[in-house]
């Protein structure tokens, strides 16, 4: 994914980092080599944990002293006790899970809040590519051919908001990002963002 670097953290990660409260317990699902966790540990004093699918990612993360387990969102969230974390992060991974609904529900069970980012399948380029080209779209944020994509559950920003409503999840904040990682205005029911955003980033909380 192409995002302009800002400091030493990717822009989308920086936006996520800004949403994390200092000093809390954080679980980063799909944490890669632990870049975000390391940053949060250093700058926000969080007690961070991670889950990552690849051995290389886990190994790199553990090698910088982070607590990361090899696993995935579909199988490894269910064991955590309710309320174990202040914040659970899922960055650019929701669309690659087998059961996004269960994953989302689990995130807000084990965490008080969740931060989720995903590529927006409602982006006008995607719509245009499919409508006019008649082929599955390949874009900066969806950079795979249909036959080799790890992304098996695409959604649009509006689809996501509907699911959150169904699960009784409160959307505390939404941020829409364009292709270059610039923040777009996000207002109302998100129809405009759904057309213009290449990815969406949401801060969620459990409705009591």
């Amino acid at each position: 994914m192409m995002v302009v670097a800002n400091g030493n953290l990717r822009v989308d990660l920086r936006l996520i980092a800004d949403m994390v409260e200092p000093g809390g317990r954080v679980l980063d699902v799909g944490c890669g080599d632990g870049t975000l966790l390391a940053w949060l540990g250093k700058h926000k004093n969080v007690d961070g944990r991670g889950i990552e699918l690849s051995m290389a990612g886990v190994s790199a993360a553990v090698a910088q002293g982070l607590s990361v387990i090899q696993g995935d969102a579909d199988t490894d969230l269910k064991d955590y006790p309710t309320g174990a974390f202040d914040t659970v992060i899922l960055s650019q991974t929701l669309q690659a899970t087998y059961a996004p609904r269960t994953v989302l529900a689990n995130m807000l069970r084990i965490g008080r809040r969740a931060i989720v980012s995903f590529p927006n399948f409602g982006h006008w380029r995607v719509r245009l590519g499919l409508a006019l080209g008649g082929r599955m779209p390949v874009t900066d944020t969806l950079a795979y051919e249909w036959y080799d994509t790890p992304n098996i559950h695409f959604c649009t920003i509006r689809d996501f908001l509907v699911l959150c409503r169904e699960l009784g999840i409160t959307v505390e904040r939404g941020i829409a990002l364009d292709r270059d990682g610039r923040v777009l205005p996000f207002a109302g029911d998100g129809r405009r963002a759904n057309l213009l955003a290449a990815q969406g980033l949401f801060e969620l909380s459990r409705s009591v």
Partner: peptide, 16 residues
Amino acid sequence: VHALNAVAANVSFVEI
């Protein structure tokens, strides 16, 4: 690992 997660332990796990 799952048992450790269930008690929110500080755990790393890797399959080499």
